[in-house]
Design a protein around this nucleic acid. Structure first.
Lengths: 340, 340
DNA sequence: TTGTAAGCGTTATCAT
DNA sequence: ATGATAACGCTTACAA
């Protein structure tokens, strides 16, 4: 049923031209007689011609596709990154391959291996692979990291500080002096990063910070943490992400503990749904679409740098200055004065 | 920096063999001497050989990739479909290209055109294109629809009836006799489908159903609809999707209208966050991952049917029997006895 | 301005 | 069991 798609030869034959002329006309218009050009375009439309990208790739070495790796398409953070990436890619005529690795490093490795030959580069959002593997991969193909840093590999990470600083200031103002950080997965660079920064910012003000042992980044994890929260004697909680935050919030509500009267809660990511709760969840969000777009632009710059132009000293291993992608604090109802 | 990847010629040369032997060894093991086989595999690993998929495609005509079109990666429904699709594709060694078309039909057309040459087939979730264009596309390449039906094009749609029937039964039981359907976008097949089915099921019981004019499927749309809800004199609301439902719920709460005491609310899709609200939102969910997986399996069956095997009467235009993908009613706090 | 021809990395056919 | 060799559809010197 799907009849063979037309090739440049079909067009050439139809018009009594040679394939190379057709190719030229279709690729670099201007290098061919105006009327011929027109006839070719006409014929191409007529025949429903589409360039065979595989055949082109084999010659040019360019795949015009790039990969985006996501541990979990289901987590809202990734969606915005993907959307931003998709749009930036589209602007440059690139197609996007997505790899959902479901938190499994085996699948991640697998996908990476398979996709390698099909794309010009990859964006890795919170990959599970260890630093060495990531650096290794970056040796073999253009790679840009999102929400993670690895030495020598370009990365795009929003600047956590402004949003978190605002949140801490607000907590201070409300009288909170003891905070509990609900850690995410230990292997997640971003969880450690947020923790460190929270520590630093609180130290500046003399706020005490404790932290739970690391756990998953899920709603259930948050619910489980309710006991720890109550036992900790802390008046406010900063969760690694909104899922955890909402988990505690709902569990505390279920136990009759009033938020924010007895405990204040702040999350991270400003996921869709974080303002559906009662009270709405205060959270620190990042411009994730821009993050995704920036990552792709950086990736494509690297891709461009690889082949054409003077093989200059090369754009080389730059990282987007985070100042350009600041997080924002969303002050919402889950924050209130410290009790007592 | 990314040195040229090794080819089968490199392996052949290294081992003093011919390229065809190497190719055979790598593709159909068994047709080559066991020890040669082993040496080749060894060398391949050594050299970090990866098959050049573009080169392979040009010969075989198979791309080993498929496309998944999504109007909005940001809406949870799509994510689950994508995850299911990704996994089913992965099982068969297929890579997935995703197209986020941001509700724009121009971008949709564009992406479809561009991707056509790069994939073996596409899964279209709620495409904007009209029936004719979809049928047309299906003429030129394997296509499977999700959450939409078009004559002559295979599609996978969960069975709305069981979930909706349960919801209606529950509403009846609670004494509701007048319902308001908050319509989604008119162009969305699924919105019309849900409406029709609701009409039918309610008629069976003698429940009256009204419907709003169509609107967007967003949270804001729900908030705006609050007036209509209150003016309608209906005791319960069925929203086209959870976003709308949560929008009304929050807006009613803001106005001091008690849910479910004064108005009961049911949504569709069981999106993440639908149970974060207070009260949690009652909703009708579908096994979306399975839907995605089923769509891909059907697509790959069509792809397989295109070339190899006896060109039999062909699997042809089947549609997955919906009985296999039933929706489920989630009874939650937003439902209560009809007032008065 | 246009045509000829070589070659990209594979697979597949046909010999050997 | 293995090796030549010819495609696949396209780009790109180079020649006309």
């Amino acid at each position: 049923m799907p009849k063979q798609p037309a090739t440049i030869y079909d067009i050439a034959e139809l018009l009594g031209l040679s394939a190379s002329t057709v190719s030229r006309a279709l690729n670099k218009p201007g290098r061919v007689n105006a009327v011929t050009q027109h006839r070719i375009e006409e014929a191409a439309r007529e025949l429903g011609y589409r360039v065979n990208t595989a055949a082109r790739s084999i010659k040019t070495g360019r795949r015009e596709m790039l990969g985006v790796l996501a541990p979990d398409v289901t987590y809202t953070v990734f969606q915005d990154v993907l959307r931003g990436a998709e749009q930036a890619a589209d602007e440059r005529g690139y197609l996007v391959l997505v790899g959902e690795t479901s938190q499994s490093s085996a699948r991640e490795e697998d996908w990476l291996a398979r996709v390698q030959t099909a794309v010009d580069g990859v964006v890795l959002t919170s990959p599970r692979a260890d630093d060495a593997s990531v650096a290794d991969l970056a040796e073999r193909m253009p790679v840009v990291l999102v929400n993670r840093r690895v030495d020598g590999v370009p990365s795009v990470v929003p600047d956590v500080e402004p949003g978190l600083r605002a949140a801490v200031a607000r907590l201070w103002e409300l009288g909170h002096r003891r905070l509990l950080y609900l850690s995410g997965p230990q292997r997640l660079w971003m969880s450690r990063h947020r923790h460190e920064l929270l520590d630093r910012l609180c130290r500046e003000r003399g706020i005490e910070v404790r932290a739970t042992a690391s756990g998953s980044g899920s709603f259930e994890r948050g619910a489980e943490a309710a006991d720890e929260v109550l036992a900790s004697g802390c008046t406010a909680v900063v969760a690694f992400n909104d899922l955890i935050a909402i988990g505690v919030l709902k569990e505390l509500e279920a136990r009759g503990v009033r938020v924010p009267d007895q405990v204040s809660i702040v999350g991270f990511d400003n996921i869709r749904g974080s303002d559906y709760t009662s009270p709405p969840l205060a959270t620190i969000g990042a411009p994730l679409q821009q993050v995704g777009a920036a990552a792709v632009r950086e990736l494509l710059a690297a891709v461009d740098g690889v082949a054409p132009s003077p093989p200059s000293a090369a754009a080389g291993r730059r990282r987007t200055r985070p100042e350009e992608l600041p997080t924002v604090f969303h002050d919402r109802g889950s924050l209130g004065p410290a009790p007592g």
